[in-house]
Design a protein around this nucleic acid. Structure first.
Lengths: 202, 202
DNA sequence: CCTCCGCTAGAACGAACGCTCTATCCAGAA
DNA sequence: TTCTGGATAGAGCGTTCGTTCTAGCGGAGG
């Protein structure tokens, strides 16, 4: 059988295939420990898969696996972003909602689960092309989502493009600060300031 | 002799002591490769010191060495921050100057040398107390510097405190975005937006 | 029935890891 | 001169790293 699950009814608690389990485990471990701090054997253990399975699905080794995990984290964060930004007609309020959601999730994980890709992104700058490309695509994806909502809120196209970049990178920075301070405050305050900045446009 | 250099005339090109060379090399390597990605032997090689010397000066091992390197990076970034923020009476212009300086240095290092501590900070969250503490102290130091300049620019104490946190974390996020995009734009645009935000206070 | 093959399983490889340990060097005190 | 102790030097410890490789499993097609 090619892929025993997922082809039929995606309802109920779908039994997760081995490949999917490996990607999810890798994503969470990279988020918490970074690229160099995460071993393939730890991943296979955590995913309840064997080393053979890991290299079967990802013959490109650790780098290919990490790139796939980055794409997983990309979509994960995009879902949160869309949910938060779609929560209110007022774009300022919507951004505040986003920071609130991030803060809540961060606290719930005991300040462990920050941005799913920033740690890996930072330590592979200029030395792991496949990963760098996945990271750049994730940022571009997030910027596009934010841009869309800003334009919908009546902000001009060029202003929206620039602001979207700032919003995304500011969320990254605030999440880092919140992790370090073990406090929701940096995220919440940043949300307030972003809303204030957006209010000066239109 | 206790410390052969630095006790006398700090003029001319001071011959750098072994301990100092080790700290500098560690700081640069941590900045570029993160904590787990940097080996003690690589540090000793890069610092032109031997393994024996490293453990002589840092009996606490890798963690103690990293904490010291974080403190080095702390002061390094603080110097840039003070220079940038002191460059203009207009606090908005001063922030723009900061982002410009960061952008120039980042480009000059071929997008390698971002924030000297963020990579290490992210991968040691909740698992290396000595490092976490040094990181938290660095952020507090930077916030204090920014707060001071904001207050001097006529912004109320509480607003200044909150804004300082946002300014610092936003610079972090923008630097990350600039490294990933291999472009000065995220930093420069963020500078513009920060100035605009600050202009809404007084 | 047997064959095929996607997938699972884990032993084994050389290299690198952080760290310990002993030995040596050498400027200044006695 | 001998002694002393900070500093240098690097071999070697046990462990873990990423990766390779061969062997076995079990359902589908002939």
């Amino acid at each position: 059988m090619k892929t025993p699950e997922r082809t039929e009814t995606p309802e109920k608690t779908t039994p997760v295939g081995t490949r999917e389990r490996i990607v999810r485990a890798t994503s969470r471990l990279l988020q918490r420990q970074g690229y160099e701090g995460t071993g393939i054997k730890q991943i296979s253990r955590e995913a309840e898969a064997t080393l053979g399975s890991v290299y079967h699905f990802f013959p490109g080794g650790k780098q290919e696996l990490a790139a796939e995990a980055i794409r997983h984290g990309d979509e994960e964060f995009a879902v949160l972003l869309r949910a938060g930004l779609g929560s209110s007609a007022d774009i300022g309020e919507a951004v505040v909602t986003c920071t609130g959601m991030l803060a809540r999730e961060l606290r719930a994980s005991d300040w462990q689960d920050g941005c799913p890709i920033s740690s890996t992104a930072l330590e592979t700058v200029g030395r792991a092309p496949a990963i760098e490309q996945a990271v750049a695509a994730a940022f571009a994806n997030w910027r596009a989502i934010v841009t869309e909502h800003l334009v919908a809120a009546g902000i001009g196209a060029e202003d929206a493009r620039e602001l979207a970049g700032t919003v995304v990178s500011t969320l990254e920075g605030a999440e880092l600060a919140a992790q370090i301070a073990r406090s929701e405050e940096p995220l919440l305050v940043t949300g307030k300031h972003l809303a204030r900045l957006l209010a000066t446009y239109r």
